[in-house]
Design a protein around this nucleic acid. Structure first.
Lengths: 139, 139
DNA sequence: CTTGACCCTGGAGTATACTCCGGGGTCTAG
DNA sequence: CTAGACCCCGGAGTATACTCCAGGGTCAAG
């Protein structure tokens, strides 16, 4: 069990952010010291890392809360829980496709840059994106 | 040449957002009508779609402006331009890895949900993420 | 028993990316 | 020539995700 500052340095997240996450229902301290200090354990650190990964994947805190709830339900593994998981997966996959297209486009750009004799094609990136026929999800 | 409303409906973006993008230096109308109406062409629509794709990939508007500038430079294809492209690519690839890990984790979750006899493993998502050993870039 | 490093709460402030509004011009169809 | 649908600008408001105080308590070391 350690205090907030330790968790903060373990996860490269500020104390304020951790308190904010708690306020938003994303993490709960494992306990509290007599003086009212928040106390955390290794699972807390895992949870924070998960949140950061998910954020890095483009999820909002609200969505991440959903994912965590989804993970938390030990039994109620039916209907909407599964549906949400499938939804998220489709979302992620569409993002991956978009990102791969971007990556390819950048490859092209980098390649064009490599042989400096050729000027950069005006539309390298856009063309690559359009070839990839990526669908941007409508929010 | 068409007006802002048309571009808005073509790209599923609001008039306000288009004006905001202009203000932020992401798009310029191809021209203006005598009355001062913004006039756009097909390239404008492409550009907007590019912005949306890039946003969907987790780029900020500031970064997208960079990407567009990068794309725009017909000659100055050296040094920092190339460097930035390489940087972006690394960024994207790290995100793709993280997203693949998320996707796999969700697969597992969905699979667990499929045979409802088994309760959901408490740590399915987190465990998968940790197996994937994803590095979250420090901003 | 004080100093410095830590913790608490509540609330205000910031950056990003829109979104909405008021007040007013433009333009096309009837 | 007027009604309705469109456009303009400037500025205020909103949601998200922090970030930074102020004012005060806790605690281990010297």
């Amino acid at each position: 069990m350690f205090t907030i500052g330790k968790l903060a340095s373990l996860t490269s997240v500020s104390n304020d952010t951790l308190r904010y996450y708690e306020q938003e229902g994303l993490v709960e301290p494992a306990g509290k010291s007599p003086a009212g200090y928040r106390l955390y354990d290794k699972d807390s650190a895992r949870r924070i890392r998960f949140i950061k990964h998910a954020q890095n994947c483009g999820f909002t805190l609200a969505e991440i809360r959903d994912l965590l709830v989804l993970r938390g339900r030990d039994k109620a593994c039916c209907g909407d829980v599964r549906t949400r998981a499938v939804e998220k997966k489709l979302q992620i996959e569409s993002k991956i496709r978009a990102m791969k297209a971007m990556s390819k486009a950048l490859d092209q750009l980098i390649a064009d840059c490599a042989n400096e004799t050729q000027p950069v094609n005006e539309c390298t990136i856009i063309a690559a994106l359009e070839r990839a026929n990526v669908k941007t999800p409508v929010h």
